[in-house]
Every structure is written in C-alpha cells, then in structure tokens.
C-alpha cells in the first residue's frame, strides 16, 4: 500500500513538473527552483510532513522535499536555540543529499573519462 501511494504521489509531483515544462514553458532550472520554493512554503505551514507520513518516498524523493528539509532544519533549530537557529539549522537535514551529490559527482569526474 505504501508503495502505491509513493508511486501515485511521486508520479503526481513529476506531472506537475512536466506541466510546468510544457504548458507554462519554464526552463528546467526555473521549474526546479519553483518546486523547491513550493516545498519550503508548504513546510512553513506544516503541510509537507503529513504528506511524507502519507506517501513516504513519494514525497521525500522529489525535489520539493529539499525545500521542506531546509525549512524543517531551520524551524527545528529556531525552536531549540532561538532566531540564530534559522541560519545554523537550515542545512542540517539536507546534508546527506548535498554532501553525497558533491562527493559522488567529484569522484565521478576523477574516474570517468570525459567524452568529446
């Protein structure tokens, strides 16, 4: 059941992205930035965590969850340490994604022979 919801919600978010490509005619960078901002705003209203509880990876794998994780880290730290927490906590939860993307991409650039 969890897999079905992950499929439907994850696929649905990708369809929203595709509609932004095709109908609104946004570039991929504009689409991704918009989705991240939407995820951030949704978590500001405490709406993204319920979606993750409901759809699991269907909500945590699309890029919207990156905005959600930034806000979630900032707000958790804001709650724990006060206003400075917005700055210090922001990247706490997204570290896994950003660090691994940097490290694996760098290693790939070292190992893989560039084409052309």
């Amino acid at each position: 059941m969890q897999f079905l919801w992950a499929f439907l919600v994850g696929g649905g978010i990708c369809v929203i992205g595709q509609l932004m490509f095709d109908v609104v005619k946004l570039s991929p960078a504009h689409t991704m930035s918009t989705l991240v901002v939407v995820g951030a705003i949704l978590d500001g209203f405490n709406l993204y965590e319920p979606l993750i509880r409901f759809a699991g990876a269907g909500a945590s794998i699309p890029i919207t969850s990156f905005g959600n994780a930034l806000v979630h880290g900032a707000l958790t730290e804001l709650h724990a340490t006060g206003p400075v927490g917005v700055i210090t906590g922001m990247f706490k939860l997204t570290s896994a994604g950003i660090s691994s993307a940097i490290i694996f991409s760098f290693l790939a650039a070292l190992i893989v022979r560039p084409k052309g």
Binding site: Q2, G11, C14, Q18, A57
Partner: peptide
C-alpha cells in the same frame, strides 16, 4: 509527456521507498 513523467517519476519514488 505527462504520462511518461508520471510513470518514471513514480517508479523512481517506488525504488526510493
């Protein structure tokens, strides 16, 4: 395009799950 995005995006999320 939307159908393709739905199926592939959904499958990637299922793999993640």
């Amino acid at each position: 395009n939307c159908l393709r995005a739905f199926v592939v995006g959904g499958l990637i999320c299922v793999i993640g799950q």
